[in-house]
Design a protein around this nucleic acid. Sequence first.
DNA 1: GTGAAAGCGCTAACAC
DNA 2: GTGTTAGCGCTTTCAC
Lengths: 362, 362
Amino acid sequence: MTKRPVGIKDVAAAAGVSVTTVSHVLNDVAYARVGTETRERVHEVAQRLGYGPNRLAQALRTQRSGMIGFISEEIATTPHAGRIILGAEETARARGYNIMIINSTSTGSQDSRESDVADLLDRQVDGILYATMYHRKLSVPRNLSGVPAVLVDSEDISNSVSSVIPDEAGGARLAVQTLIDAGHTRIGMINNTDDVPATHSRLKAFQDTLADAGLTFHEELVHSEISEVPGGYQAALRVLKSPNRPTAIFCYNDRMAMGAYRAAAKLGLRIPEDISIVGFDNQQLIAENLYPALTTVALPHYEMGAWATKNLIDAIEGKTDLQQFTAQPTILPCPMVLRESVAAPPSNSHSRGTDLSARTTT
Amino acid sequence: MTKRPVGIKDVAAAAGVSVTTVSHVLNDVAYARVGTETRERVHEVAQRLGYGPNRLAQALRTQRSGMIGFISEEIATTPHAGRIILGAEETARARGYNIMIINSTSTGSQDSRESDVADLLDRQVDGILYATMYHRKLSVPRNLSGVPAVLVDSEDISNSVSSVIPDEAGGARLAVQTLIDAGHTRIGMINNTDDVPATHSRLKAFQDTLADAGLTFHEELVHSEISEVPGGYQAALRVLKSPNRPTAIFCYNDRMAMGAYRAAAKLGLRIPEDISIVGFDNQQLIAENLYPALTTVALPHYEMGAWATKNLIDAIEGKTDLQQFTAQPTILPCPMVLRESVAAPPSNSHSRGTDLSARTTT
DNA sequence: GTGAAAGCGCTAACAC
DNA sequence: GTGTTAGCGCTTTCAC
């Protein structure tokens, strides 16, 4: 059936050497002195026989499996998971590691989460990546300590395990600044109602950026709703109907921005001529396909996956101490991605805006 | 560091029995006769010591790793991958298996794809799942034969490995029938230009369903474009501008449907009052959030992942022979998901349509 | 330069 | 009922 019971000793026999020699040359052991001619012969034979090392046996012997456990909640519901996994997988594979995946429901009990970790530990993974699909604080399973581990897109509540998160504030500042740079002076925001870090830091960044630019923050121009399309629609409707309506809106995420598009359409407002919109998340499916395409800020999912994996492996291999990252999360930048939804404010607005881009499209 | 060097022999020592006994009770070996009292003691001690089996050692000994390799192309680009992975992971875990993931680029060479398989084989996976993100035919890496394997969402060109695919035709029939049932008699279609199975089978199903209902197929009412939003927009514009325009459009996928929504808006046509739209794929982000929400047909990604895994494991455990599925792919149904984009045709249309739902919204 | 042999943690004959 | 032991495929110490 599986025609691969060719082991190191088959190679040894065929090459007329001992298993030790085979092991030495195949692993390029530094201190081993093996004749060049023997080396070549071993390689040639191994190749010809189609030898492949049994990584399990190696692992048992060396106490290093070369496997990284990846616990992720809600793998399926967002495309974000894919980006994190990809970042992790590519980084791991480049260094000879493989990723073992476990899906954990966010509704799972503490017990079930511990047993997810135990599963992985039984498999002898060298380290664990623990990923969430949106940035938040959580208390990690107890049995995670003692193993090299890094949290992706979340922070440990007790700061005992290293983690990597997006620069929410920086991204938000970029978004708001983009609006300011386009000439907007009266800017609204539609925010999330959940009590997660992003809600607070994006709002604060919004205020700070306004302040830094000498613009006033109008409380009545920020409305919060559930961070989905309908919520975005409702909130946007409210800000757009406010007495002195803003010329631009900063949206908590792309889905809410999608709702804002609909609100604008409903009110007969053109984007970006009458109202500029900027989102957050860079969900391709939405951002690229909305009309006009949405200017938004990207979350560094791939990069977080890659960073986490690189540092996890460095720690496993003793090149680095994960402890150094434990005190506070590592923060990765959220780049701006410019598309079509931002323009200068309409020239007849109450702003000091210039009328440079009074292009009419309909 | 890792405080878990507690093995079977530690348990044996602490319980005052031999390792055999421990192994027997922990694995519930059928033929082993062990005293009830001993059993309890062993369990208790194992528990107390926090014993966890070393799955690597077990695997080495039993020649069964309990790991399933999952090769997927483009893990990150579509949410579909997540659903397949989830179906596979949940099914596997329920049976004591874990999933090892490898991302393979669809642009990769035959060689690189063979080495993806080799990687997994070195890891001693018990079987391999090979998934693509859209349904198509491919030639599998040569070294995949000889290992239990199943293709997910694709077919082997030489029909030598079992596979599971969506019922494209059935889904398309459902979609078209939904339109017919709503009273439409003049129906257009916007199709994909790629030469993939779905393109042909969805078109054929479209024609067949029309024929079965005694409706005529109008060649000029089907237009093809690249299967993305802009393509959908262009194609829909063309069908909607045709002399005697249809009252409903069947779209190749949800993205094209999104384009069709824009085309309708551009032309001042209301959905579903003036024109009914049905999509394909059930991409939540789009289908649920478009306004009005899109009626579409779902692709059974989760189910395919689950089916593939169940049957792979059955084969691994000798409960089933995968050979039986090899001659032709197993086909899983694509259920209809009804939302808001279909209504009866406008009463003033040339159809025999009733005017039951002449609700005006705008 | 090369090889013999121990042992990673476990299972499963087989012996008692 | 319970214990002894060989060996899964490999790495590595040590001897030659």
